[in-house]
Amino acid sequence: MSAVLLFLVIVFSAIRPDAFPSLANAQNVVMDAAALLVMAVGMTYVMIAAGIDLSVGSVLVFAGVCSAKVMGAMGADNWGTVLAGLVVALAAGLAWGLFNGLCITKLRVPALITTLGTLGAALGAANLVTHGNDVRTVPLTLIEFGVGGPLGLSWIVWVAIAVAIVGGLVLARTRFGRHTYIIGSNAEAGRRAGINVDNHLLKLYGLSGLLAGLAGWLSLARFATTTIAGHSTDVLAVITGVVLGGTSLFGGFGTVGGTVIGILIPTALSNGFIIVNVEPFWQEVATGFILIAAVYVDQIKRRARERA
């Protein structure tokens, strides 16, 4: 997949050598990727456990709305307000995630349907709270946090990098991560070996919601507004990135490192299309077909392995 990313970079650089391969543009790409990556880390866990979470984009919006409302109500433009906004965003995300997890593990509603339902419900709830208008009560302190940072990268990007590093280490090196792989590979084997599968899945969906909440807060820092209508295809980009990164849609394998590369592909595509003056809607068309192709390749790999 690194080759695909490299290919995209070369093609776009060849078409617009003046615009695409610049430091400023690279900063744009990683900035675009940051919030998606935060959600994709949670999605990687969920998908390795053979689940899916379609609600992340809507949960991002809902958490951002709650956070902006609370920060607006508090009024003061300081770090106290910003951190309160963070806590609210995390709590709102976690609540949706746990709701997903409870429906999936206790009520046995399939993850696809549960999270499709909350995809609609969380966005609807966000619109109810705001009457459909974006909330702009984002403190300047938070906006400034999104602008600067070490090495020319925004703090938003650094937060995403930190989430990816911690998420990657926990997945690869800890018992929590190992149980995630076991559940995705053969949940019954895990159950027989004493792993509390339902409890673990609940934590994974909670984690996915929590990270979507964090992404909502980061999105406020980036755009200084809630961008309610701007996240309908986030879940497409996130799942495409995770699958391109080598995580199987059917669970059992995948890495956060792969997801980091994978998430840059739809982001670079989107950025490149804008730069070469292709209508940006083409990016969604392309990402959609890339997702289908990536899952097809995953299927072929699985079949080849089972034959061997």
């Binding site: 800890t174 018992r175 076991i182 590979s185 053969n186 019954e188 895990g190 070996a193 792993i195 059992g252």
Partner: peptide
Amino acid sequence: SLAPDLGPAENAFVGRELIKPGLLGWFGVL
């Protein structure tokens, strides 16, 4: 009752994973 995506050693310790001693163990590091 095997996890097909994991190796034999990993399968041998499913549900009985050994944890490192000390602080790393507190974080559940295998």
